[in-house]
Design a protein around this nucleic acid. Sequence first.
DNA 1: CGGAAGATCCACT
DNA 2: GTGGATCTTCCGA
Length: 199
Amino acid sequence: MLAPAFYERPAEVVARDLLGRYVVRQADGWQGVLRIVETEAYLGVEDRASHAWGGRRSRRNASLYLPPGHSYVYLVYGIHHCLNAVTHHGEPGAAVLIRAGEVLAGEQQMIERRRLKRVPKAGDLAGGPGKICQALGIDLRQDGILLTSEELHFTIGEPPRSDEIARGPRIGVAYAKEAAGWPLRFAIRGHGDVSRPRL
DNA sequence: CGGAAGATCCACT
DNA sequence: GTGGATCTTCCGA
């Protein structure tokens, strides 16, 4: 289990270090495990793409200002949930978005939660931030909880070698001006579950 | 108080 | 490749 101190570092360091780690989700006697293959760092106040940009606070993003090691779950586009880990190093409001994972356990339940009609192909179950939350049964009820909790936590996992890590600009933040091009997206190079466009 | 846009995904062409 | 679904928040009038 990764302790809160793991998250007391700059978001881009944590984002890179979360690659290969396991997300463990336990609910109703079920256990699901994903190996993280893609993340993005959001730096907080000075990052135009961050929900904390300019020190913004609202009921929606309140969890971004919790101590490091808490979750930040929010609703995007009115439909999909996204899971983040709150980090802290100086300015508050930084976090890491968990963008994609490889299924290691609990696949059958995930297929049902995802309402897939066919046999899942690479990326179908957890190859995107919204898919991860749907597959793991994560919604606003998991917003603001400690990521060392029984129901949701991260563990050591199998980190990739540094030469297996790719990085590039973040997805869906073209509006963020100068921050749009910052290379804060990290992925395991060539992994089939990384979301599009592939790094 | 209305309108626009968003850290997305899916069905359809 | 394109557009629709659907909710929260922000901004301008």
